[in-house]
Amino acid sequence: MFRNTKMRLGGVNILLLTIVISLIVLYRSTSYCLCKVSPVEEAFGQPMKSQPRPDSGEHRVTCHIPGLESRKQFYQYFTEKEYKCENLRWFGSRDGRKAVCMDMEFYLVPQDCHVLSFGINNEWSFDDKFGAMGCKVYSFDPTMGKADHQRSQNVQFFRLGISNIKGQRKVGMGSRFDFFEVDRYVNILERLGLTNTTIDYLKLDVELSELEFFQDVFRNTPHLLRNIKQIAVELHHGYHGKGLNKTEDITDDSSDMSPISTYQIFWQYFHELRCHGFKLFHARRNGRWTEAVWGNI
Rank of each mutant, 00 (worst) to 15 (best):
G96S: 08
R94V: 05
N296T: 02
I265G: 00
E212Q: 12
I297P: 13
T221F: 03
R60E: 06
V115C: 01
L192D: 03
R28S: 10
Q168G: 05
M7N: 13
R176E: 04
E42F: 10
F214S: 00
V115F: 01
F91D: 00
S139K: 12
G238C: 05
E86M: 10
G243L: 07
C101N: 07
Y263M: 01
L23Y: 09
R60Y: 05
M104N: 15
N227T: 04
L88H: 06
F106A: 01
K6A: 13
E272Y: 05
T18P: 00
R3G: 12
T79L: 11
D55Y: 12
P47N: 09
F278N: 02
C35H: 04
F140Y: 10
P39W: 07
R184M: 14
Q264D: 02
V109I: 12
K146N: 15
L26Q: 07
R3H: 10
G131Q: 05
E181R: 08
Q73H: 11
D112N: 15
R219H: 09
L202S: 06
I231L: 08
S261F: 01
F213M: 01
T143L: 14
G295A: 11
E248A: 11
Y269T: 06
R8Y: 14
S258Y: 00
F74Q: 01
E212H: 07
I231V: 15
E234A: 06
K49V: 12
Q153I: 07
N154D: 09
T221D: 04
R184N: 06
I297G: 10
S29M: 08
F179S: 14
W267A: 01
G92L: 07
I165C: 05
G131E: 04
N4D: 12
Y138E: 13
Y83C: 02
Q268N: 12
L189T: 00
A283P: 11
M7H: 07
L208R: 08
F278D: 05
A232P: 00
R94M: 08
M257T: 03
G134T: 06
Y75N: 03
E212M: 09
N220K: 07
F177G: 01
G172N: 08
H240G: 03
T30M: 08
D128E: 14
M104L: 11
S261Y: 01
N154V: 00
F214M: 05
K136L: 12
Y201K: 05
R97V: 10
A99V: 13
L204R: 02
F126Y: 12
L68Y: 04
G145C: 08
F158G: 00
K246Y: 03
F140V: 04
G241T: 01
L204S: 02
G241H: 00
V115H: 04
G67D: 15
S22L: 14
L244C: 02
S29V: 04
V12W: 13
T247M: 06
M104Y: 13
K36M: 07
T79S: 14
V109P: 00
G119N: 09
P39N: 14
E82C: 05
I250Q: 09
D252C: 06
L204P: 04
V37M: 12
